[in-house]
Design a protein around this nucleic acid. Structure first.
Lengths: 324, 324
DNA sequence: GGTAATCATAGATAATAATCTATGATTACT
DNA sequence: AGTAATCATAGATTATTATCTATGATTACC
């Protein structure tokens, strides 16, 4: 079957359906000799007759019947593929593979939920891991999109900011600095700090912030996760700089407070994107569009109460978390 | 997918396998630009990218992965068909549809057995029915081959004789003419005859035989099957002209004897064939060849003991059936 | 920065597939 | 026998596909 063509099979199907060369020709808007020749060619390729003529009547041979099955399978397979492609183009089908750094797990599900509702046919896969691994996955082209808090410096990537990611100083609610306003940075330097591991975006940003101001932190402890840091802070082991998002879901908790420190919150962003070379799929583009419009709402909702952000009332409410 | 070609799919499969245009080109003995263009065309036809390049590395897109599945299905389906065709050509697969008149049921299974042993992959279908229906099936092109005792006169058929079909006169073993030799036809005319229905081959041949000799039969009864006729003969209701094959399997029975009648047995044949227009399949041709060689043996075996046929000893053995 | 490797594009050619008109051959029907 | 219907064949043309050479663009590596 090396040289059979899909056209020949289509003509054969028509003849097999009509059991007439002439009617097949009409159906396909061809002349009868065209049909005759196409069938002759196909029969020569197969090496056995596909049709037999008994008087004026046309019958399928056994071989012809088998070929008809194969031909139908092919037609149906291609038709299904076409439908799938159409759905993919219309964002009615397809896959979205996201890899996000750990901290993003606090808000990404809030975005994925509505996205999946809007595009119910999309298959979403979410990988949550540390920054280093996310970058490796990017290099290995394992996902469609990546969410990071800190753009990598030595990689050709295409990232856009889509959400504010303020870094705040947190302390135990009964910390001496808990209700002070505009705490000078120098006062803060006397406090022991709890840090994430080297390489984490938050740590990088923190070190840069203090480094630019000639300040050196007293690092009491490095901890491997935001949860551990929060527990240590609540236990009075020190203070920490964290993404405000790590606290967003625990707004009703009363163990941690933000410190109103001069220069804080550090205004940073969440970035989403991919390697520069990569061409985003239709689904990935749809998600990017969705992010652009939805993250505004999300930001307003979740960043409320954080000093410097919308919804933070300076006058009659000191600190929502501390007010509870 | 109206305009995609099997060639394009083949090239795509190679690229997908190798994840490299250059290696695919080598594998297919083409130049790299050929491969590049083929993939570009296919991608344009589909309307979505099938491959993505990240740096020097080539990856399949989701769409590409789906197309690869479809392409494999197509390749596999065609490959299976090719194998089947090869088997059909080699008589290793295929179908044989036979329609035979009722009397042929006495010997056809003896031929089909060895044929099926020689060609175990052939699917055989045997239809046993009266002559009229066999002819109608032939007109309707329902089978591959037909077995008849009497060629139809007003149909364009291609039939060949393959086996002797002697018509003999049978009587009850205690019939007055049982042990007579060379019975004159005139004596036979005094006997009542039992006949098959009008239209049956045996009846036609019998009527022609006697007609040509100016004799008129006394038909006592018409019966619808050979079995009924044999029972009636054994019960003394009359004599009958029957194909020797109807008795072949009952050689050891002692109820019926052949009568040694002048002019008998009527030498006739079994015919096998089809409508003149019909092109016999590879399997049908194989069966015809098989019949040509096997029917000789069958004839020697089954016609032994019948006057006028090999193995009939005139001197010291009067009549094998009557000697029991 | 230079080189090698790899894919993309431009332009051209060759090969193949698809199709048509005209006519022949055969069957079915009156 | 004549006519209509239907498939096959011959010959020619058109359209499309497949492929190549040459070159450009980009990435990866040293």
């Amino acid at each position: 079957m090396k040289h059979a063509t899909l056209r020949q099979l289509k003509v054969f199907e028509s003849v097999a359906r009509n059991l007439s060369f002439t009617r097949a020709a009409e159906e396909l808007h061809l002349t009868q000799p065209t049909v005759s020749i196409q069938l002759r060619q196909l029969s020569d390729i197969v090496g056995l007759p596909l049709l037999e003529q008994v008087g004026k009547r046309v019958f399928l041979t056994d071989t012809g019947r088998e070929l008809l099955k194969v031909s139908h399978d092919i037609s149906e397979g291609l038709a299904r593929f076409e439908m799938l492609v159409s759905d993919m183009k219309g964002v009615k089908a397809g896959k979205l593979r996201l890899a996000v750094i750990t901290t993003a797990k606090y808000f990404i599900p809030r975005l994925l939920g509505p996205f999946c509702q809007r595009y119910p046919g999309i298959d979403v896969s979410l990988k949550v891991t540390n920054r280093e691994r996310v970058l490796q996955r990017m290099i290995d082209n394992e996902d469609d999109l990546y969410v990071l808090g800190q753009p990598p410096e030595h990689m050709d990537v295409e990232l856009e900011p889509f959400l504010e990611n303020p870094l705040v100083v947190v302390a135990a609610h009964d910390h001496p600095l808990a209700n002070r306003k505009n705490i000078p940075l120098s006062r803060l330097m006397e406090e022991p700090f709890l840090m994430r591991e080297a390489g984490s975006g938050t740590r990088l940003a923190t070190e840069r912030f203090f480094g630019e101001r000639g300040e050196k932190l007293k690092v009491r402890m490095e901890l491997g996760s935001n949860e551990a840091i929060k527990q240590a802070v609540a236990g009075g082991l020190g203070i920490a700089v964290l993404s405000a998002h790590t606290l967003a879901l625990e707004r009703h908790g009363d163990e941690l407070v933000y410190l109103d420190v001069e220069g804080f919150p550090i205004r940073r962003h969440w970035y989403v994107g991919h390697l520069k070379d990569k061409q985003p799929s239709v689904v990935a583009l749809a998600f990017l569009d969705f992010l652009r419009e939805e993250s505004k709402l999300l930001g307003e909702h979740y960043l409320r109460g954080i000093p410097g952000f919308p919804g933070f009332i300076q006058d009659d409410q000191s600190f929502p978390a501390a007010s509870r």
